[in-house]
Amino acid sequence: MATDAHGAAEPGLVFHPMDQFMVKPLFGDGAVGIFTLTNVTLWMALTVAAIFALLVMGTAGRATIPSRTQSIAELAYDFVRKMVEDVAGKDGLKFFPYIMTLFLFILFANMLGLLPMAFTTTSHIAVTAVLAMMVFLTVTIVGFVRHGAGFLSLFWVSSAPLPLRPVLALIEVISYFVRPVSHSIRLAGNMMAGHAVVKVFAAFAPMIVISTGIGLLVTPLSILAIATIYALELLVAFIQAYVFTILTCVYLKDALHPHH
């Protein structure tokens, strides 16, 4: 009975905007264990494959005058490298492969998630939280290894008047620990919201099948809305990858040069 109510026979519009985010096993219908091959596995593998195709196969020619694909690979390389160098400084370049990994993973996961029927791995807080925690731990460890207790001067704003400093220190400490939270929720939230909105509009699209009168108005509008939101989502997919990466660089700069 419930399945009937859930199925296609149900009259009216079907709203399941969150179904796209469900983690499902690829084979069978069992529970999801740690090593189960799921749609997460599939789309992460596709992300890796896309990165491999662009950065390894695309540059296989090693041409002095690059092909189109090689140009894009070089562009991505220069883009991230310059970002690291400009924001974190020359000594931040040691972390360039690490930051490039984050950037490419997020960018390709976001972009692949925009394909119809795709699963967006970066819309899950579990994934983005791990990414953010990795950055947080790296930055904290690097900070303490490089500067020892001197890293704590990050929280001690020496340019502020002395009585204010303890208050500022408290605020700085709190903001420091909030970083991974905002870092991860920003990315997951953006991805999830956009995809959910597209799905909601998509649910309105078959209105014309149900009621021709209303459908004539609603169906074209919702299709237009899907296209518009999709274009916006393309932008967001890139911008969120960029924002995540540049914040990583900023945090890394704090670790390398904690003195204000």
């Binding site: 983690v23 529970a31 999801v32 264990g33 740690i34 090593f35 189960t36 799921t38 997460v40 596995t41 992460m44 593998a45 992300t47 890796v48 990165i51 491999f52 950065l55 390894v56 492969p97 690490y98 490039m100 990994t101 984050l102 490419l104 993973f105 791995t121 899950h124 579990a126 994934v127 791990v130 990414l131 990795m134």
Partner: peptide
């Protein structure tokens, strides 16, 4: 219940990407 699975595959993917890069 799906967190373990996601985190495991994420780490696999990141390690692979890191080595490729």
């Amino acid at each position: 219940s799906t967190f373990g699975n996601q985190i495991f595959w994420l780490l696999v993917a990141l390690v692979v990407i890191y080595f490729i890069l």
